[in-house]
Computed example of a mutant assay.
Amino acid sequence: MWKPAKSVVMAGHTLSDMEVWLNEFGHAFLDLCDDKADGWLSGLALKLYPLAGDRAPRQAAKIAYVTRTYDGPC
C-alpha cells in the first residue's frame, strides 16, 4: 500500500495512511475539476481506496478524473 513520505498530524492527531491517502486524493480530484465535485467525492474515494490504495493518491485522482469525464457508451 501507498505510504506518505512523513507522518501527517491534524489537530494533534496523527492520521493513518488511509486517512492521508483519502485527504490527498480529495484535494487532487478537486484541483482537477475546479472544486466542482459534489458530496459524492468522499464516497468515490472510499470505493477507490481498496482498488487504488497502492498508487499515489494524486495518480489515482487523475485516473478517476479521466474515467469520470470520459464520454463512453454507458
Results as ranks from 00 to 15, higher is better:
28 A>Q: 13
38 D>G: 13
39 G>K: 11
29 F>A: 15
15 L>N: 05
11 A>E: 14
46 L>Q: 07
16 S>N: 11
37 A>I: 04
13 H>T: 11
8 V>M: 09
46 L>C: 10
46 L>E: 11
5 A>I: 07
27 H>A: 09
9 V>K: 10
11 A>F: 11
41 L>C: 10
10 M>A: 06
10 M>D: 11
43 G>Y: 13
18 M>C: 07
9 V>F: 06
24 E>A: 13
19 E>I: 10
8 V>K: 04
28 A>T: 07
26 G>S: 14
39 G>H: 09
22 L>I: 06
40 W>A: 08
19 E>Y: 10
33 C>S: 06
25 F>V: 00
35 D>T: 04
20 V>Q: 01
21 W>F: 03
15 L>S: 09
15 L>V: 06
44 L>K: 12
11 A>G: 12
39 G>T: 14
10 M>R: 08
41 L>E: 08
13 H>L: 12
36 K>T: 08
46 L>T: 15
7 S>T: 02
19 E>Q: 15
44 L>N: 07
21 W>M: 01
33 C>R: 09
23 N>R: 15
15 L>H: 01
21 W>N: 02
10 M>F: 03
14 T>L: 04
31 D>C: 06
42 S>Y: 14
5 A>D: 11
5 A>G: 03
19 E>S: 05
40 W>T: 12
21 W>E: 14
